[in-house]
Design a protein around this nucleic acid. Sequence first.
DNA 1: TCCTGTGAAATCATTCACAGCC
DNA 2: GGCTGTGAATGATTTCACAGGA
Lengths: 232, 232
Amino acid sequence: MSAFPDLPEATIARLPEYLRALHNLGEGGADTISSEGLAAAAGVNSAKLRKDLSHLGSYGTRGVGYDVTLLIEQIEYVLGLDQRRAVCLVGLGNLGHALAGYDGFASRGFKIVALFDADEAKVGEQIQGLVVRHIEELGRVAVEENIAIGVIATPARAAQAVADVLVDAGVTSILNFAPCVLSVPANVDVRKVDLAIELQILSFHEHRKASLTALPGGRSAAAAGNQEAVGS
Amino acid sequence: MSAFPDLPEATIARLPEYLRALHNLGEGGADTISSEGLAAAAGVNSAKLRKDLSHLGSYGTRGVGYDVTLLIEQIEYVLGLDQRRAVCLVGLGNLGHALAGYDGFASRGFKIVALFDADEAKVGEQIQGLVVRHIEELGRVAVEENIAIGVIATPARAAQAVADVLVDAGVTSILNFAPCVLSVPANVDVRKVDLAIELQILSFHEHRKASLTALPGGRSAAAAGNQEAVGS
DNA sequence: TCCTGTGAAATCATTCACAGCC
DNA sequence: GGCTGTGAATGATTTCACAGGA
């Protein structure tokens, strides 16, 4: 079927956030929501939200707002969430265990269908109803189960080899939790999550804030109220 | 001491990646590295790397490259990693357990000094040498231990209340794993990691790729080589 | 010659502000 | 009157391309 116009990458990254907000609002009983209201629920400003949604087409009603159900369907369609993609998870250390048990996957359009590890001691273990298989089966199983997305939660030194196997098995999307850069062909998408990097970015801002407290009324330890504003 | 020039946010977000690459290169025995080489190790292009580093000052040598040790020190200084910040972790479900055991924190300038949970059954449990405390102690302990960064790994419904307590205790940086938007005062930085969102972004690209396979030589299931190129 | 540091150009993203529709 | 959709303006980021130091 027809492809998509070239949605800006920044817009794509925000659509899942809008979707989550819409689900919340829907459960709260709202049929319709203004750009202002949805923007607040998603933590962005309303102009940005309207611009983002306008890229998908015209699904709002002037003077009224957006139909919650319709907009959910639209965004899910664009993100391709109507087709419950098969995901495999490689590496069942602490993090892998947590990911295997994370219910946010199942509830948002994904299904973990296979687990792999290189450690013989882990192979055979049962986690969330799935048996851990040896990594040598990865190539075969990935093809059999039609796996679309591979999640890598191995140590950094193993990650590239795992990525190579995934790519050879035809997987074209990888979510990488290992702290390293992966080399893959251009048709494969890699996204990376590095927990320590997030902390380091926060550390920078702490450092900067600390180097400013010398100046004006140094806020002691306690901020009262509860305003808005969220760090980028 | 003196603050920083206004480093672009995009640059800040890449510095930790350069740092990791530099540590790898250093362990590999390199004393000096060109922008081209470091860029490859960090997965960016060399022009961007040079521009980023030029914001920190002039730490390279024309015709030669960057001194690995010096550059590591510089970046660590800018990120404020020389002062081993105290971190607390709230919420010890699956993900919390994994985070408590994540050695990437200790090895990159952070120290988890306290764990909290609201569940009486978890309070008292010992994890990685720390005892889980009841969340009611959070405010007091955060002040006592001079906690700089709070990590929230609770369910979404609890996250805002936890954030409020952290803020009241003077914590000005929060890393939020709960899938919700937090409201905090403007002086508090929040960064968010949402695992399901990352998958949804990959899903979009899968969807788009699928809607294109109809056209040219539809690649069957298997890509051979191992070129470069990493998805954004 | 090799490689950094950097203005200038090009691209991408956000915000403004208002016309047009309900 | 309220609210979306969108050009136009602004701002941020990336990329180019090359001057200039080692």
